[in-house]
Write a protein that binds this DNA or RNA. Structure first.
Length: 588
RNA sequence: GGUCCCGUAGCUCAGUUGGAUAGAGCAACUGCCUUCUAAGCAGUAGGUCUUUGGUUCGAAUCCAAACGGGAUCACCA
């Protein structure tokens, strides 16, 4: 639409002898109730025209109509100049742009970006919150890739620490040698079972100690189980063979479990980092910071940074005993990642409960003078809440990822079978279809809302399959494929028609917005932008479909045109959904 | 208490750098399947955009305050 902006600038210059900046021209979509596709707000020009908004609009409109070929007509309502662009323009958009092989294909921009997401703890299975994280990270990676970036998907696995030892200890004491094979339990669920077990037994010990007269604080420190877990952690750090062996075994189970969940989710990674490898990193950065005077040492030997001038607090970066804290590792890992890939941008997909941590982390790296610090970005997403409040693993109020996906599958199966549309499909085809639809519903449900906002999930209300949903869009795609099959669509050919019907024009207009939507989603780090756009496309198609027949088109030319338009729509839907990590079926 | 985020229809959400009578979906109510897939289409009803003040031609959008909700302020990760 740049040509309209340029024309308006020229119009103002010729009519009122005044130069206006291109970005002062306010273009927006014309509202449905008025005629036209593009609207210019004329209030800003009344100052230079010294006339009322209506007269100014009329003058600019007449100028545009006389001087710009693509502008067919206009109307002015109050301060709004509504412009109708000639059908020929939209048709050429379809033929030369939308149907082209390279439509919305962006050339590599030469920039590399790392997206770190998922980053699970290996002591318990994934839950709904992790699903949101995984889907966001994967989708954002797809979007950035489509926007021209070279993307590295990274997973920083939290595979060590006291919480891992808790599961290990509980298994050692109560497990009786249980394995995924012996129990039929998925590995991550097995580990999670013992994690919960530990917590229960630990709480029991605390209660007993309190009854014996200890304060709660004392009891928490003195409970035998927590002491044993701490001992185990020390042994782990010392490389104790028995502990390391158990650790490897249990983590192995968990990884097998995660692999299954990741596969079902359809996410993948290019690079795994393990905290067992990185937890000691960062100490050299602490040295660097001390040398540069960015950090300072307290009398007890602990190292700190003072961020009070930046409105934050003093922050510990190294304990007095020389051991790392969370942020020490993250400083080191950030450097490691940069050394490995030299990326221009690095995105952390992490919940908004860690906003403060990342603010501090990025600020420290900036103060250390890291040239790459300005490319760091925290994609801070909102928590997934249940009607009862926040999910808590230890209290069992979580929606388990595997359970939820299984539920989605069976709901999809019910709905699909009830609709009676799977006749003739083999069992494996049906299975794939149920999975596609179930996951489509779940993924779309989670991705359509702005990542920054918290999200409410009610386990008692099933995820919708109607309306503004994944299955609605998938259905639209399948419908198009069905129409094209019946119409005998053969592929791309140049199409023409005399005049566009509004429903056809609206559909073309929405398709032209695909490239800018990808750019906007990439810039805003928001899959929701894509999700809402694809919904608009699907809605426009269904409206078109309802009003105009492809097969029964009045002329052969018109039929060709409508087939092309339908095929182009299916293509945009398919590619747009792919950016969300959602597959679309050929029939459903 | 300090800092940060959020508040749009009964519910779940859109709403670009300020622009027209604030839009969808679900739920409710009406129509439309002998015509390309009704997981669809069309329609009715539902709003003091939390409140108050400010900025201006014009505010859901920007600023300030209040109220309400959430997060965080660990030598946990």
């Amino acid at each position: 639409m740049d040509f309209i902006i340029e024309a308006v600038v020229k119009a103002v210059k010729d009519l009122y002898q005044t130069d206006v900046a291109a970005d002062a021209v306010n273009l927006q979509e014309t509202r449905k109730e008025f005629e036209g596709q593009v609207t210019i707000v004329t209030f800003p020009f009344t100052k230079v025209s010294r006339k009322g908004p209506e007269q100014t609009g009329t003058e600019i409109g007449e100028y545009l109509k006389a001087n710009v070929q693509e502008i067919a007509s206009f109307n002015v309502i109050k301060g709004f100049l509504n412009i109708s662009i000639a059908d020929a323009y939209w048709l050429s958009q379809l033929n030369n742009n939308i149907l082209a092989d390279d439509f919305a294909v962006v050339k590599p921009n030469g920039k590399k970006v790392m997206v770190e997401y998922s980053s699970p703890n290996t002591n318990k299975p994934l839950h709904l919150g992790h699903i949101r994280n995984n889907l966001l990270g994967f989708s954002l990676s797809e979007i950035l890739s489509a926007a021209g970036y070279e993307v590295v998907k990274a997973n920083l696995v939290n595979d060590r620490g006291i919480h891992i030892c808790k599961s290990m200890l509980a298994w050692q004491q109560f497990g009786n040698g249980e394995t995924p094979q012996s129990s039929g339990l998925k590995g991550d669920h097995l580990a999670g079972k013992y994690y919960v077990w530990f917590d229960k037994a630990y709480k029991q010990q605390i209660t007993e100690l309190i009854e014996e007269g200890q304060t709660e604080e004392e009891a928490k420190k003195n409970a035998p189980l927590i002491k044993q877990a701490q001992e185990m952690l020390q042994k782990w750090e010392a490389g104790d063979e028995e502990v390391i062996s158990l650790w490897k075994t249990m983590n192995g189970w968990v990884y097998d479990g995660f692999a299954e969940t990741y596969k079902a989710l359809g996410v993948s990674f290019d690079k795994y980092y393990y905290e067992s490898d990185t937890y000691l990193l960062g100490k050299d950065i602490v040295e660097e910071g001390l040398a540069k005077g960015v950090f300072f040492k307290k009398d007890d030997g602990s190292v700190w940074i003072d961020l009070t001038e930046d409105g934050l607090d003093q922050k510990l970066v190294l304990r007095a005993d020389g051991t790392s804290v969370y942020i020490t590792q993250d400083l080191g890992t950030a450097q490691l990642k940069y050394n490995d890939y030299h990326m221009d941008e690095s995105i952390y997909v992490v919940g908004n409960e860690q906003d403060y941590h990342f603010k501090v982390l990025f600020l420290i790296l900036e103060k250390l003078g890291k040239s790459w610090a300005k490319g760091l970005y925290h994609l801070s997403y909102g928590m997934v809440d249940l009607p009862s409040g926040k999910m808590k693993s230890r209290e069992g109020t979580v929606v388990d990822a595997d359970d939820l996906m299984a539920d989605m599958y069976s709901t999809a199966k019910e709905q699909t079978d009830a609709a009676g549309k799977v006749e003739g499909l083999s069992d494996s085809e049906k299975d794939a279809l149920y999975h596609t639809i179930g996951m489509g519903a779940l993924k779309y449900f989670l991705l359509k809302v702005d990542p920054k906002k918290r999200l409410l999930f009610d386990p008692n209300e099933s995820v919708d399959f109607q309306g503004h949903t994944g299955p609605f869009i998938q259905y639209t795609h399948a419908r198009i494929k069905s129409v094209l099959a019946k119409a005998g669509y053969k592929g791309v050919a140049f199409t023409s028609t005399d005049a566009l019907d509004p429903v056809e024009r609206d559909l073309i207009v929405s398709l032209t917005k695909f490239p800018e939507t990808i750019a906007e989603a990439a810039k805003g780090h928001s899959p929701a932008v894509v999700a809402n756009y694809i919904y608009e496309v699907a809605k426009n198609f269904n409206k078109f479909y309802h009003e105009k027949s492809v097969n029964q088109a009045e002329t052969e030319d018109l039929k060709q045109f409508r087939m092309q338009l339908s095929a182009a729509t299916a293509n945009v839907i398919k590619r747009g959904m792919k950016l969300l990590g959602i597959q679309v079926p050929e029939r459903m």
